[in-house]
């Protein structure tokens, strides 16, 4: 259909919607939100007052904050905290995926094992677990690997083999794995059952279905709460003093303040570093979420595309069938009953 023809129905007494002449873009006066502005002004005033007050307050000791924020001991401790977070989260995620898959297998033995793990590690405080890991060498002075009641293949002293740093990572990771397992499980369960069936009908095994079909789709659901867990882990590392590991950011700054008698500025220093890392992690999370949203939520683009492609000329907008292109002048729009046929 050509554009010249469109002018015919538009010239009639009742031009159908979307006629030949384009309608003007809407120029309306924007709705005002005066209370938002009032609230923002109050907040800004309050914040400025707080800053001005804090800058002058003796107890903050800003000169100490400036002095210690890039102190070598602090920055090294910050690096340790970051390492603790990354290592324990990597282990926790891997273990969490394994546990979640174990909980969903049809195998009742594996299933119960995973359930038991979750019961123990979610049921006790992480601080208590970390203390236990610290006491490992007292409970088990040597670790033997081999067949029970036989000469072990390997044997090593617990104290020598596992540093407090390693124990801290083990403690944090095993605890976190229990929470990760629940997050992953929720993700796996969120995938439509039809996906399972389609993969099974194709002859894929249970494991192939899980690994190739279900797990990748569940990532979209798993990643946001996992990002939270990483951020939470960054802060939980401050508990490793229970092991006792004392070279993380929080314990280090406490130790320094114990010598200088300036706890408040050093807490501020630690907070600055925690906030810095958290901000970086948030950016990383944003990009991961984007990556795994692939193939989802792109439908809108297509819709707009078909709309502009077919909604031409005299097609009544209210007809409910945008794909049917009617020739212009072919009867009145359906909203007008009793028109000539």
């Amino acid at each position: 259909m050509s554009t010249e023809n469109n002018s015919r129905p538009a010239a009639g007494a009742t031009p159908p919607a979307g006629g030949a002449t384009e309608s003007e873009p809407i120029k309306a006066i924007r709705l005002r939100h005066p209370w938002r502005i009032v609230f923002a002004v109050v907040l800004v005033i309050g914040f400025v007052l707080f800053i001005v007050d804090a800058a002058g307050r003796e107890a903050y000791k800003w000169d100490f904050v400036a002095k210690y924020v890039f102190d070598r001991r602090i920055s090294e401790a910050a690096l340790n905290t970051l390492q603790l977070t990354v290592y324990s989260m990597v282990i926790a995620i891997i273990l969490g995926v394994i546990l979640a898959v174990m909980r969903l297998t049809p195998n009742p033995v594996v299933n119960s094992l995973a359930w038991f793990y979750l019961w123990v590690f979610r049921g006790t405080p992480v601080y208590v677990q970390l203390v236990f890991w610290g006491l490992l060498s007292i409970i088990y002075s040597s670790i033997d690997i081999g067949i029970p009641f036989m000469e072990p293949w390997f044997s090593f002293e617990t104290n020598a083999a596992l540093s407090t740093f390693t124990l801290a990572i083990i403690g944090l990771a095993l605890n976190e794995a229990a929470y990760m397992a629940e997050i992953v499980r929720a993700g796996l369960l969120s995938v439509d059952k039809g996906q399972d069936e389609a993969a099974t009908a194709l002859g894929m095994t249970w494991f192939q279905t899980m690994w190739r079909v279900i797990l990748p789709q569940s990532m979209r659901v798993i990643i946001p709460p996992t990002g939270n867990e990483v951020i939470s882990m960054l802060k939980t590392t401050s508990l490793v003093t229970a092991v006792p590991y004392s070279f993380d950011l929080y314990t280090r700054s406490r130790d320094i303040s114990a010598e200088t008698f300036t706890p408040i500025p050093l807490l501020i220093v630690a907070s600055i570093w925690y906030l810095f890392f958290t901000s970086i992690l948030m950016v990383g999370q944003h990009f991961l979420e984007k990556r795994f949203a692939r193939g989802v939520g792109a439908r809108e683009d297509r819709k707009i595309d078909t709309m502009s492609g077919t909604l031409t000329g005299a097609v009544p907008l209210g007809s409910g069938q945008p794909t049917v292109v009617r020739p212009p002048g072919d009867g009145p729009p359906p909203t007008e009953p009793g028109g000539p046929r």
Binding site: G194, A198, T200, G203
Partner: peptide, 29 residues
């Protein structure tokens, strides 16, 4: 699973793998 390989099934709700392209969907099995 071996028995199912020889029996193709098409579902009412398609059940395509949304994280794979059309080609990858066909190639997967």
């Amino acid at each position: 699973a071996r028995q199912r390989r020889d029996i193709g099934m098409v579902f009412q709700r398609f059940n395509l793998f949304p994280h794979m392209t059309a080609l990858e969907n066909v190639m997967e099995a």
